[in-house]
Design a protein around this nucleic acid. Structure first.
Lengths: 336, 336
DNA sequence: CTGTTAGCGCCTTCAC
DNA sequence: GTGAAGGCGCTAACAG
């Protein structure tokens, strides 16, 4: 009591709580984590002891024994692309509600970092892993399945999941947009895309549906408004008569529209534009932007639930979930 | 070898590595975390054993004894407001480079959740905490200082830090924008703002510098393009002759511009607009948006470094860092 | 419903 | 340079 040390008091442990409450260690433990096994009177005494001691559980210690860290690793290419934000948000919230915490990792758009980051994450012993995109490294794939930890690959689909998947087909998105352009009668079409794997899959689907090469501008991911302006300039150089262009993100599309408009082109009368992602601003641009809507929050919610269910020992009847997509037609692609 | 169990092989522990390498447990430990204490030959043997066993360190276990979790808790109001993204990104990257991992928490814009979230985070025994904004709850403040864990409050300044601070004065931002408007000779000014604490501080600074009440639109945080359109409508109802308006974010300002333009107002000739945050698109809007630039990435970097240094036992000579701000003048506030 | 025992995997402390 | 004990804080597995 008379200790003059200003240093932080050693944090209370469950031991202190148990002593304060006059019960054994394990009873205190159960009162907090499994109250069904303990009498109401005891629970109350323990809770009072918790308040009195200022006890904060140490999940690290508990996790060591129980082999449940209550953490889930989330890997995104980069946090600064708004596209994945609703997913990260829903992931965090759904996990939080179930007592799990998200630890965030940025893999960059470079696959070589993927393996290293994964190892860093694994050393935290997460109860699950949610990855934006597919796991590409074969070594990482094997390691993950060997470890047997729940993995959800998101924002894409393939027939070779590491474990579980929540996403949609980027190839189909590309061909759907191409089909939409063709249905409008637009033949002189172009594409502006970031160079990341998923955007390139959409690019491939677009080309396949068009059936021939088209003017293309490829920029380093993540694409941006600024890159959009440059991409538009490039495309108009390749074909000044371009009638419609598909862009790999809405911010990117906004940049193309700005550049086109600043060159006196009218959208959609002279040039139609379609984006991807349905950003919050897209409906409010002038003209409003036609885009492909993805339920990003849904992806996060479902991915989290898959992890939670798997950790709870439930069997997953549908380990691969296709959330689909749909084209939202707005003014930027209105018929002439 | 002939075990038919398809279940995950029990992950290798340091014990397995040591046996494989023919050294004791502790030598294996040192070879990995403190190679200076071990002979080169031993290090190599251990590293081979690591590769052979597929060993992944268990930081949970190590942290239990060493009392260093190598995790830092990061609290943001919500991940989905782009404003804090550069901070989160820089934070993640700087911490990662020093071997720390960020665990992300969303406190919402509701202070009551702050305490609960903080407790959840503390149960992971983070080595540091970075908070967006100030810690408001008195109980939380006391708890944090009692625990003695490094805390950085960011994106704001006050004279009563829990521990360390990296930010700038929102009141000064507000008065600077007001001063800028007045220097242009604009008297009929208005303000559109989200209702979060920091935006309201800017609001207060703005009003104080103007010296009287002005038409105001307050929307629930986080503000958005859509809220911007509504806010503009409200403001024009209050004063159809409004000459200049200050908005609490750039996306929000974009919404105001869109609404104003759709009503036939010319920006900046009829109405000038200033935003806050210098989003990536702001320079590219038509007209380009005048805004207040904050070095968000710098805040993240400095906050991470403060935590890292403190954990390394270094004394911090400057625990309160003012990163300042500056107004970026663009077309949306060009003089008549 | 409650308690005892025995670790989880690693690192600190002390010895050699 | 290396090793042997002991314990970080908690919880599974068994008793009673």
């Amino acid at each position: 009591m008379s200790s003059p040390t200003p240093q932080p008091a050693k944090a209370a442990t469950l031991h202190d709580v148990a002593r304060e409450a006059g019960v054994s260690l394990i009873t205190a433990s159960r009162a907090l984590t499994n109250p069904g096994l303990v009498s109401d009177k005891t629970i109350e005494r323990v809770q009072q002891a918790v308040a009195a001691t200022g006890y904060i559980p140490n999940l690290l210690a508990g996790g060591l024994k129980s082999r449940r860290s209550l953490m889930v690793a989330g890997l995104v290419p980069t946090i600064s692309v708004p596209q994945f934000l609703p997913t990260v948000k829903a992931l965090t919230e759904t996990l939080d509600a179930a007592g799990y915490q998200l630890i965030l990792g940025q893999s960059g758009y470079d696959h070589s970092r993927e393996e290293k980051l994964l190892n860093t994450m694994l050393s935290r012993r997460p109860d699950g892993i949610v990855i934006t995109g597919l796991v590409h490294s074969q070594q990482a794939r094997e390691q993950l399945s060997r470890l047997g930890i729940p993995v959800v690959e998101t924002w894409d689909l393939s027939d070779r999941p590491v474990d579980m998947m929540v996403g949609f087909s980027h190839v189909k998105v590309g061909s759907a947009v191409a089909g939409f352009f063709l249905s409008r009668g637009w033949q002189r079409v172009g594409i502006a895309t970031g160079d990341d794997h998923r955007a390139m899959m959409r690019h491939d689907g677009f080309l396949a549906a068009i059936g021939r090469a088209v003017p293309t501008a490829i920029v380093p991911a993540p694409s941006s408004v600024e890159w959009g302006r440059r991409a538009m300039a490039q495309l108009l150089e390749k074909d000044p008569q371009l009638r419609a262009v598909y862009c790999s993100s809405d911010g990117f599309a906004q940049g193309l529209m700005i550049e086109a408009q600043s060159r006196g082109l009218r959208i959609p009368q002279d040039l139609a534009v379609c984006g991807f992602g349905d950003a919050d601003f897209s409906a409010h641009l002038q003209p409003s932007l036609t885009t492909v809507h993805i339920d990003g929050a849904g992806i996060g919610r479902i991915a989290a639930q898959l992890i939670i269910d798997r950790c709870a020992g439930k069997t997953i009847d549908q380990p691969i979930v296709d959330v689909g997509f749909h084209i939202i037609e707005r003014q930027s692609t209105a018929p002439a």
